[in-house]
């Protein structure tokens, strides 16, 4: 098996430009193309060493794919490539206005469990969260392009806040849609 450059970063591995905005369809197509080369099923009859390498390569491709397709992970990874280290992944922010909004959203999400029309209310919150996530992504792109890395880190962390509430909401919607 031809061994690729392990020094490549995920963007290079996937043949993508080093920017936050990527085409999900292109990302997916590249992932399949890479797995078609490296997946262990393509190396069943090869030597032990080749098969071990193939498991490692396929794992690497999967890890890269998971990182790139998730906006929060992708933003953190972009910062890492630019030598900006994020101390840990526990998201904190000192923006009190933002924090107040998060607390309010979280409560609204929890409230969907109770009372009538929970599902409709959850859909309104879903739209609001989507809008918020898009705004934060645009902020990130702007700060990152201008080299304002501290501000970019702040945007990335806020994106993480919003993503967690989105996951919480999806879980509640699942419960509400009970058959």
């Amino acid at each position: 098996m031809q061994s690729p450059e392990l020094s490549q970063n995920y963007f290079e591995l996937f043949g993508l430009n080093l920017v936050f905005e990527i085409d999900p369809a292109e990302l997916h197509a590249q992932q399949q193309r890479l797995q078609a080369t490296y997946h262990p099923d393509r190396h069943v009859g090869s030597s032990d060493q080749d098969r071990r390498l193939s498991v490692q390569m396929a794992s690497w491709v999967n890890q890269a794919y998971e990182t790139l397709r998730d906006p929060v992970k992708r933003s953190r990874y972009l910062l890492e490539i630019h030598g900006v280290s994020l101390p840990d992944d526990s998201a904190t922010t000192s923006d009190t206005t933002f924090l107040m909004e998060q607390i309010e959203l979280r409560e609204a999400v929890e409230d969907c469990r109770h009372g009538d029309n929970g599902l409709q209310r959850s859909e309104a919150i879903e739209a609001r969260l989507k809008q918020r996530a898009d705004e934060l992504a645009r902020d990130f792109v702007e700060h990152f392009a201008a080299g304002r890395f501290d501000a970019a880190i702040e945007s990335s962390r806020k994106m993480q806040f919003v993503q967690r509430i989105q996951q919480q909401l999806a879980e509640i919607q699942f419960e509400l849609e009970d058959i």
Binding site: P40, V55, Q56, A58, S59, W60, N62, Q63, Y65, E66
Partner: peptide, 8 residues
């Protein structure tokens, strides 16, 4: 539901 093979 993580794609396999995978390493961490």
């Amino acid at each position: 539901n993580s794609a396999i093979p995978v390493a961490r």
